[in-house]
Simulated assay, not measured.
Amino acid sequence: MTLLPAFPDMILEPLVRAALAEDLGTYGDLTTRTVIKAGTRYTARIVAREDGIASGMQIAVIAFRLIDPALSVRVVVPDGGAFTKGDTLAEIEGEAASILSAERVALNFAGRLSGIATMTSRFVAETRGTSTRITCTRKTTPGLRIVEKQAVLHGGGFNHRFSLSDAILIKDNHIAAAGGIRPVLQAVKAAASHMVRVEIEVDNLDQLAEVLDEGGADVVLLDNMDTPTLHEAVRMNNGRLSLEASGNMRLGCVAEVSATGVHYISVGALTHSASTLDLGLDF
Rank of each mutant, 00 (worst) to 15 (best):
L20C: 12
D213P: 11
L3A: 07
A19C: 13
S101M: 05
G157E: 12
V73H: 08
L30V: 00
K171E: 01
R49W: 01
D203L: 14
T127M: 10
L15H: 12
T2N: 14
I181H: 09
Q58K: 10
V202M: 09
A48Q: 14
S55W: 13
M195P: 00
A48M: 13
E13Q: 15
T43N: 01
G143P: 02
T137C: 03
T229D: 03
R250A: 03
T118I: 11
I265Y: 05
G216T: 10
T32Q: 11
L270K: 09
Y27E: 03
D9H: 05
F83G: 05
V211N: 07
V76E: 15
L20S: 10
E22M: 02
P183C: 04
G80T: 03
A167D: 14
V105N: 14
V35W: 06
T260V: 14
H154I: 01
N159H: 00
M1N: 13
T34K: 07
K139S: 01
L270M: 09
C253Y: 04
T43W: 01
R65H: 07
E214C: 07
R240Q: 13
L270Q: 08
C136Y: 00
K37V: 00
T118Y: 03
N159L: 01
I59L: 15
I116Q: 02
A44F: 09
E244A: 08
T132F: 05
G81K: 13
A60R: 03
R235W: 06
G280H: 12
Q186S: 14
A102S: 14
D68S: 15
S193N: 13
P8A: 04
A255Q: 13
E201S: 04
A255E: 13
G268V: 12
I46F: 11
D206L: 01
S258Q: 11
V198H: 07
D9T: 02
S242T: 14
I168E: 05
R128I: 06
A54W: 03
I146H: 02
A177F: 00
V147A: 03
L15W: 04
G143T: 00
Q186C: 03
Q150M: 12
R145Y: 07
I36V: 15
L164Q: 02
Q58C: 08
E244P: 08
D278I: 10
T260D: 15
H160K: 10
G252I: 05
N224Y: 14
L222E: 10
L3K: 15
Y264R: 06
A177L: 08
F123I: 12
I36R: 11
T127N: 10
H154D: 11
G268H: 11
M249S: 05
R240I: 07
L205Q: 10
T127H: 07
K139P: 05
H231N: 15
D206A: 12
V198F: 04
